[in-house]
């Protein structure tokens, strides 16, 4: 009986650590879209951008945003922040193809081909519609988790 009990303890301990390490191994392969906000002049106005990450590093140099040419996502950079911006939300991602497809959809919706810095189809309205807030809402909705923004986006 003691042997059985002792063996059970060993299995329990090893199993726990094994589950933990398997979990770590699994999440290393998991990809995410992480969202960052570039605060303007320390107020409550932001530019928002998404990057593809594996939670440790950024896995693509594609910025998922519209209405700016400023660069944020650099392949290989640490994922806890991007230049001049702070982290604010995340979601699971299936990979770059998924994000590219949603980027294309947002570009088509707001007339920002190839993530252009201005729209060729709608009037930019920083407070209500056709702005980078609305772009990221369209993108994140397509991607599966709609992030919060400060514009109503009519």
């Amino acid at each position: 009986m003691r042997k059985v009990l002792f063996a059970g303890v060993i299995v329990l301990v090893l199993g726990s650590f094994n589950t933990h390490s398997m979990s770590e191994q699994y999440v290393e392969e998991q990809q995410y879209v992480e969202y960052y906000r570039d605060n303007l002049f320390l107020g409550l106005a932001y530019h928002r951008v998404g990057c593809l990450t594996n939670w440790t590093t950024i896995r693509s140099s594609q910025d998922y945003d519209g209405f700016t040419t400023k660069r944020y996502c650099y392949y290989g950079a640490t994922a806890d922040s991007v230049p001049d911006a702070s982290w604010y939300d995340w979601n699971y991602a299936t990979g770059k193809a998924q994000l590219d497809a949603c980027g294309l959809r947002a570009n088509n919706r707001y007339g920002t081909p190839n993530y252009a810095s201005s729209s060729n189809s709608c009037n930019y309205n920083i407070l209500f519609d056709c702005n980078s807030d609305c772009w990221i809402r369209e993108f994140s909705t397509c991607q599966g988790w709609r992030v919060s923004i400060a514009s109503p986006c009519w």
Binding site: L40, F41, G43, L44, A45, L127, N131
Partner: peptide, 9 residues
Amino acid sequence: LTYLGFLVK
């Protein structure tokens, strides 16, 4: 500063 940020954008 929020006004300035929105204005600049």
